Simulated assay, not measured.
Amino acid sequence: MERPPNLAAAIDAAAEALVDVLDTAASRHRLSVSPTQLRVLSLICARSETNVNRLAELLDVVPSSASRLCDRLEATGLLRRAADPRDRREVRLLPTAAGEEVLRELTERRHRAVQAVLDRMPVRAQSELLLGLLAFEQAAVLQAGEQQKDATVRTA
């Protein structure tokens, strides 16, 4: 297969199709949880030691904005705040059982939506897509690490 003249634009367009499939699966969810709130919930579930300041760093927002996001999630019963057992001055953010269930349901919906599209593709193309996405993920992780290192050097 010949390389398109603007590979980045072609990949961007194809990735947009994947994002549309994922977004459609999320928008059909029974709860009215915004994409940002779902991202917050997902970050908190993936990082058990998260507090509001760490969440703000992960989202690249000010702590007061992160706190307001948590307030809304707490009001809907998807998140709770708890004192850190090692340092009672620290408040950890924890998903509730309902929050974990929302993410579990969303993940299942997204997997089914992606599988429905994959079922329309030849098996070889599915394998090539997976290999390409895994390589892209590795390169993105390396780039993010380099950018983090560069940012640390500039602030030192």
Rank of each mutant, 00 (worst) to 15 (best):
M1Q: 06
A8K: 08
A10N: 10
I11K: 13
A13S: 11
A15M: 12
E16G: 14
L22I: 15
S27D: 12
S27R: 14
H29N: 05
R30K: 11
L31Q: 10
L31C: 00
S32N: 10
P35D: 02
P35K: 02
R39F: 05
V40L: 05
S42I: 02
L43A: 06
I44Y: 05
I44R: 04
A46V: 00
E49L: 08
D60R: 14
V62Q: 15
A66C: 08
C70A: 13
R72Q: 14
E74Q: 10
G77P: 07
L78N: 07
L79Y: 05
R80D: 07
P85C: 10
R88K: 06
R89E: 09
R89G: 11
R89I: 04
L94V: 09
P95F: 03
P95T: 05
T96F: 08
A97Y: 06
E100W: 01
V102W: 03
V102A: 03
V102G: 06
R110Y: 01
H111S: 08
A113T: 00
V117Q: 12
V117Y: 06
L118W: 00
L118D: 03
D119I: 01
R120K: 10
R120W: 03
M121K: 00
M121F: 08
L131T: 00
G132E: 01
E137N: 04
A139C: 04
L142V: 07
A144K: 14
G145P: 05
Q148Y: 09
Q148K: 10
A151F: 11
T155P: 03
A156G: 13
